[in-house]
Write a protein that binds this DNA or RNA. Structure first.
Length: 447
DNA sequence: TTTTGAGTTGTTCGA
DNA sequence: GTCGAACAACTCAAA
């Protein structure tokens, strides 16, 4: 009896799951496992809502797997150790997982792979979380792209994998599953989630995709910039935890495009472009792992940020006196999500108006976001700070007031999160934009 | 090797 | 109020 383990990580779904699909077609028994890694949990803020969201995704995945006739095994501990025990207990001869591209995850996976192979286990990893892997989209000279537009042209020219059907577990009638923990609560893992969480899981993600692709995606290019609307896909937490695959999202977008006139194609292309950005920032992190802690362009590591703690606290709490900035931060704090236009505004404000280094903001977003993702978040912050991959002119500094007038002209978004904006309770601006802008320009000019 | 065109999302100033 | 120019020069990618 050929027993295989499928190791779930950021692919918490049954549909279009490359490694799981392969395991289910090649083995006679597939044991799905999820390992809570204390190293990752300890590095995560104890209030991080993404932990609660992930637990909810796991609860639903567990139930979907039970309906499919198998059993999801939970373990807690160092992955290498837990996997060793699992392989021994199940007598599995193969280990399947989808590849992860973050530096820490790469190390973890290399270790587990080496150990498992040394015990004679057939370790099989798959491309799944991206459309094209870091080594697959390179310049003609074999080196990685450093600017997005050229990368995206090359990306679009490449053939892509098809989507796979929902995995069907082989029947494991006489198989004895190994011991499993009960799915822990957030509290048991040492977390305290203070905000209400949106619906999680695979079914909800597929429904959301269908709804978005039956309407707003046709106007995405324009509507996506208006934070008062719910006109973006809102799929980022699902994509982050893998309750939906980026392949499925893109395939659906292309089916929509095929059914509509050329005028809407531009909008659908813009939407697909967002997923190309995701692959782009993954390959940036893969090829240039120093970006996780330092500037993509090392010369900017010498920038003299002021890093005023009092100003940082005001920014975190959404009381800067700049309504669009405060609305964004409060949306983040209250819901675990922030509209992308407002992410750019708040990030640009922290760096260029408060002169606080992008790393502080990056860390705060990672604590609060339901879609907290190292590559995307880091890429976005470095872009905003002007230290990143593209040669964006560093003197392009958002004016938060002008941005609000342009993208929230009636103040609908602002008033949703800052209802006191027109009253005396609302504080005056904590800095003078024009002055701070000049300061920042001078700071960059010194480099 | 050299050359050429281009680079996510903007702001401010002055005519 | 509207519009075009200036904001700097550099790096990247491809021909």
């Amino acid at each position: 009896m050929k027993v295989a383990i499928h190791w779930f990580r950021a692919d918490l779904r049954l549909h279009d799951n490359t490694a799981l699909h392969a395991a289910c077609s090649e083995a006679e028994v597939v044991v799905p496992v999820f390992i809570f890694d204390p190293l990752i949990l300890e590095a995560t803020d104890t209030g991080a809502p993404i932990v609660g969201y992930m637990l909810e995704c796991l609860r639903l995945l567990e139930s979907d797997i039970r309906l499919a006739g198998a059993k999801l095994i939970f373990r807690y501990g160092a992955p290498a150790r837990e996997m060793e025990a699992l392989l021994r207990e199940t007598k599995a001869t193969a280990l399947y997982f989808n590849r992860d591209y973050e530096p820490m995850a790469r190390k973890r996976d290399e270790l587990v792979t080496k150990l498992a192979q040394s015990w004679g286990v057939d370790v099989r990893s798959f491309k799944d979380g991206v459309l094209h892997e870091p080594q697959e989209v390179l310049k003609d000279d074999g080196t990685p792209y450093r600017v997005f537009s050229a990368y995206s042209h090359a990306w679009r020219r490449k053939e892509r994998a098809r989507i796979l059907p929902k995995a069907t577990f082989p029947s494991a009638v006489r198989f004895k599953y190994p011991k499993s923990l009960a799915l822990p609560t957030a509290q048991k893992l040492g977390f305290k989630i203070e905000i209400p969480l949106p619906p999680a899981g695979e079914k909800v993600a597929l429904e959301r995709l269908r709804k978005f692709h039956s309407g707003d995606v046709l106007h995405y290019g324009e509507l996506r910039n208006i934070p008062a609307l719910e006109a973006t896909s809102r799929l980022s937490p699902a994509i982050r935890l893998g309750t939906i695959s980026p392949r499925t999202v893109i395939a659906s977008a292309e089916r929509v495009a095929a059914k509509h006139d050329v005028a809407s194609h531009r909008h659908i292309e813009t939407f697909v472009g967002e997923l190309i950005w995701r692959d782009f920032y993954r390959q940036v992190l893969w090829h240039f792992p120093h970006v996780a802690t330092s500037c993509f362009q090392p010369k900017y590591d010498t920038l003299k940020w002021e890093n005023d703690k009092r100003l940082f606290k005001a920014w975190c709490e959404g009381r800067t006196g700049f309504p669009i900035v405060d609305a964004g931060m409060r949306q983040l704090n209250q819901t675990g999500w922030m509209h992308n236009r407002v992410r750019m505004i708040t990030a640009m404000f922290l760096t260029k108006d408060l002169l606080i280094s992008w790393q502080w903001g990056e860390r705060y977003f990672m604590q609060k976001l339901l879609d907290a993702d190292l590559a995307n978040n880091n890429g976005g912050w470095q872009w905003s700070a002007g230290t990143g991959t593209d040669a964006q002119p560093w003197f392009r500094i958002f004016n938060p007031t002008a941005q609000a007038a342009k993208f929230d002209p009636e103040g609908k978004y602002i008033r949703r999160y800052v209802p006191e904006v027109d009253t005396r309770d609302y504080p005056p601006p904590i800095v003078h934009h024009a002055e701070q802008r000049l300061k920042t320009l001078a700071m960059f000019k010194r480099i």
